[in-house]
Design a protein around this nucleic acid. Structure first.
Length: 305
DNA sequence: CGCATTTGACCGTA
DNA sequence: TACGGTCAAATGCG
């Protein structure tokens, strides 16, 4: 690689990093904003911040995806590229392809809602951080797909956790998972997926999950169980979680339901949803939202590209 | 061989 | 009696 390409690569990388850091800062602002009561929120709107985050990530990805393979420097800063050592060619050929493939970005919106004694999750995957053993499958009246029944693999040690997974009718593969009972085994068998990996169902889907909980994020929209109001859902650290619609009584019956049910250190934050946010957000983000689904009182954005 | 999955039978409930 | 949840024997897989 010549010095121009080398400089170009590092300039793009630097730009991408700056934009990602900016996006992270705005995400913190958005998080703070969403924790404020609606009436106390200042002139900066949530949708504007969301748009800025989207732009930061989008620009960063553009920077990174525009790197061609000849712009990626070797690990030694490019010095080895000029050597005539044929023994390194194979290794270099593999290295040179790293980090510069192009991939269609799909940000997937996942929703959650709480019922009286369970948690429900809407997701393109039935995976979570616990190990389950399937103990039954049943055709459900009126449903297109059978319902699967799982129990925690530590049942013999007394863990009573259960989950039911129902694939939902629709163009996209989507599962409604209901978690029942708390895990008492206190063990997550599988580490969360690494940052930005393909969804096992669709390699074009990218899961923004990470092994570091402080970086994890997810969004979704569900209706509140009692008020039937649609909700905007985002996630923050568990200890920072607020739930405007969850009664104190309900909170006390499920001390730490999110972690118990899903094995994740995050749970959704429920906030009132405003109709104007929907159109503003969709318009402002310039997203292709071809599927604004409405399934069993759940409203969620299926995908945005 | 041990563990997970499959699947028909069985049971509880409305 | 229909439906949904669970059991457990049979089967598959590493």
């Amino acid at each position: 690689m010549d010095s121009l390409s080398f400089d170009n690569f590092h300039a793009r990388k630097r730009n991408a990093m700056v934009k990602l850091v900016k996006g992270k800062e705005i995400a913190v602002q958005l998080q703070t904003l969403l924790r404020e009561p609606v009436r106390d929120r200042g002139p900066v709107s949530a949708e504007k911040l969301a748009f800025q985050i989207y732009r930061s990530f989008s620009d960063s990805l553009s920077e990174l995806s525009s790197c061609t393979s000849d712009q990626i420097p070797a690990a030694d800063g490019g010095a080895s590229a000029s050597s005539g050592d044929s023994g390194n060619k194979k290794k270099r050929a593999v290295k040179d392809r790293r980090g510069c493939y192009k991939r269609r970005l799909t940000i997937l919106y996942v929703g959650f809602r709480r019922t009286s004694d369970s948690w429900e999750k809407l997701s393109p995957s039935m995976e979570d951080n616990y190990a389950w053993r399937k103990y039954g499958q049943k055709a459900i009246f009126g449903a297109d797909y059978p319902r699967s029944y799982f129990r925690c693999t530590h049942k013999k040690e007394g863990c009573k956790a259960l989950k039911q997974v129902q694939r939902i009718k629709g163009d996209e593969v989507m599962y409604q998972t209901t978690y029942l009972n708390h895990h008492t085994c206190n063990e997550t068998l599988r580490a969360p997926p690494l940052v930005v990996d393909s969804d096992p169902i669709d390699p074009n889907l990218i899961s923004f999950q990470t092994s570091n909980p402080s970086e994890q994020d997810k969004h979704g929209q569900f209706c509140n169980n009692s008020t039937k109001k649609p909700l905007v859902v985002s996630s923050v650290k568990r200890e920072e979680c607020v739930s405007e619609d969850m009664s104190n009584e309900a909170k006390s019956t499920l001390e730490d339901p999110w972690h118990d049910f899903t094995g994740l250190d995050y749970e959704p934050v429920w906030a009132p949803y405003q109709d104007e946010v929907e159109s503003a957000t969709l318009h402002g983000l310039d997203m292709e939202v071809d599927q604004l689904c409405d399934i069993q009182n759940f409203k969620y954005f299926d995908q945005m590209y």
